[in-house]
Design a protein around this nucleic acid. Structure first.
Lengths: 359, 359
DNA sequence: CACTCACGTGGATACGTTTTCAAGCATCTC
DNA sequence: GAGATGCTTGAAAACGTATCCACGTGAGTG
């Protein structure tokens, strides 16, 4: 356990000042002669500049933070891989946190990153804009991926009691009028994806199409509503929390309460998984009894029988692009990237068959 | 973008010295009176100690590193979730790196963590012991998870030419005699898991059982060899690299070259996925034509039809335990944790049927 | 009452780096 | 040849924290 060489050691060994060493290693100007000397000595001492010193000096940690709801969800795994790939090519460390879809945990993790002086992060947000305001106010460059934070409820009338409360932490009540926090983002074209799927199902003759949503699927639900057109049968839109259990419960409940539905689009791969499981449990055959299209393409979608028809979104690319965006945040243009989706038709959708019994 | 308060600000506002503030916040001794004052002021200023200053001062970064081959692999996702859960409860940041199973990338990532002065890490190693020697020599506390680094090839005869080469970086050639680097670890009981699976297949009448292995599956292969007993049909043991393509190729190749096999155990979920795909492509029915048991229990194992019989290993626990181990590294006892596996019988294994055609 | 002892406290230092600033020096121009 | 100009260089000052050490004050004891 030998101790690492410092810049001072290199400077002494090379017979130059520390400033020169720093310059050479940071690509600053130096005479070829000294440059060579310093480089040689540094190599020989196996010197690696300590990120600690540098970070303190420039008052920020290199690299970036990454917040996802759940690494067990294959899609977020893909997204994370994309981020890590980009970061690796830049030589940057990535601090990863899993929020479990819980705004409170998310808030804690943001605080932790703040403490670490991580000033760049990409996030699949769980909380609303109020959760994220502190981070952005603190000067963090935040890029949202996969979805945007929901709009916090506006409290337009800051009563005296509220003001009283705020005095506790010494903040001026009127500081932030809760504007819609503008941050770059990279998301999939949910609207087009859902619309294509719904049209596809429509083309197969399906009329009663259900939507199985999870947290953060607001845009997908909206797109679904728009695609099916009015009147929307509200009972056919059900939500689950993030957990697999909840997803299963929602799917099973949907199938049981509305045996007349003939197709369902699942808002994410966990929901899709739940739908397949619930259908099987209730002896509904796919696609004979019910057609299914799932958001997210994941390797195991092909394993199901029948293989699942999916709305593919480029998870890895999404992560990579987001990381690029957060790194070159100087490029202020081209914010709000929208990635294309693609309907991958496999075998989980079939033509609508009128129910067997009379009606 | 208001700038954060420093310990100095707190000290001034509270009318005490910085040392006192530091003590109070670090849980050191202080009179109740001052403690209260400092705490109040700190809260009011929304002071959060900067990890940068602290890290530099104590010459180490808090938190830990985590190196896995691929976050797209559900098992590593589970493992990562476990690590993150433990770290979160400790309030520690986790720097995650994805090695892609490539020792070179792994080495680079280790270097990056070294640079960050991360002195604790948990890793699913890709490289051999030589890859990890530098990290451990540098004083890192490394806990291996899921598997151990393979033993580097011993070069027992350090010829003069080798010594010459080593002079280049100024290292003494005889420094590290390549001892088997002892680091704590937490792995699954591969031996028992594989043995149980093989016995189960044997009990179903299978005699020609194949093993589909990937990188890092050394212990599983060894266990397989032991379980099937001699003579081992070497053709029935095939390997893939980490990628899904390679896994598919290996599986397809196996099925084609040895149509007489009646069961296969896949060494990991990616291999299992490949086996299902390849079998389907070759019109082999599971379990009618070939029985399949897969290492790793993953949510989608139940989605296949038939649902996959698996050797379940507790991925999340593995990560959690590893993180515990690396955090409380003072507890020198209880290194090398072995977690139990469980054969979860679903529907992918059936009784052996003698081949239809005469033989 | 003097002396000791324990404890609370604050000044000073070190951690390793980047960056500013001024100085040194050689070259170029008038 | 003198002044200006450009380039290279090193000393020094931060960055925010934890910790050593010395100082002062209080209580407790002889």
């Amino acid at each position: 356990m030998e101790k690492r060489a410092t810049i001072k050691d290199v400077a002494e060994a090379a017979g130059v000042g520390v400033a020169t060493v720093s310059r050479v290693l940071s690509g600053g100007s130096a005479s070829p002669r000294t440059r060579e000397r310093v480089l040689a000595v540094a190599a020989q001492l196996d010197y690696r500049p300590s990120a600690l010193g540098r970070n303190l000096r420039q008052r920020r940690t290199g690299g970036m933070g990454l917040l996802v709801p759940d690494l067990t969800d294959t899609f977020y795994g893909q997204l994370a891989e994309g981020v890590l790939a980009c970061a690796r090519s830049a030589g940057d460390p990535v601090v990863v946190g899993s929020t479990g879809g819980d705004p409170e945990q998310e808030s804690e993790l943001i605080g932790m990153l703040l403490e670490q002086s991580v000033d760049r992060m990409i996030a699949v947000p769980a909380g609303d804009s109020d959760t994220w305001a502190p981070a952005i106010r603190a000067g963090m460059t935040v890029v949202f991926a996969d979805r945007l934070p929901s709009q916090a409820v506006q409290d337009d009338d800051p009563g005296v009691s509220v003001a009283d409360l705020m005095l506790l932490d010494g903040l001026a009540p009127a500081a932030a009028p809760a504007r819609p926090l503008d941050a770059p983002s990279v998301v999939a074209d949910d609207r087009a994806g859902i619309r294509t799927a719904v049209r596809y199902l429509r083309g197969l003759g399906h009329r009663r199409i259900a939507f199985l949503g999870g947290p953060g699927h607001d845009r997908r639900v909206a797109a679904f509503r728009e695609a099916v057109g009015s009147p929307v049968d509200e009972e056919l839109i059900v939500f689950a929390t993030g957990s697999r259990d909840s997803a299963y419960a929602a799917a099973a409940g949907l199938f049981q309460s509305r045996p007349d539905l003939s197709a369902v689009v699942a808002g994410g791969n966990v929901l899709g998984e739940a739908a397949v499981l619930a259908a099987r449990e209730l002896d509904l055959r796919v696609p004979r009894d019910v057609s299914l299209v799932m958001y997210d393409d994941v390797p195991w979608a092909e394993l199901c029988s029948p293989p699942l028809t999916v709305i593919a979104q480029p998870g890895r690319d999404m992560g990579y692009r987001a990381a690029e965006l957060v790194l070159r945040s100087s490029t202020r243009r081209l914010r709000n990237v929208v990635l294309p989706t693609e309907l991958v038709i496999r075998g989980s959708c079939g033509p609508h068959r009128s129910p067997e019994g009379p009606r």
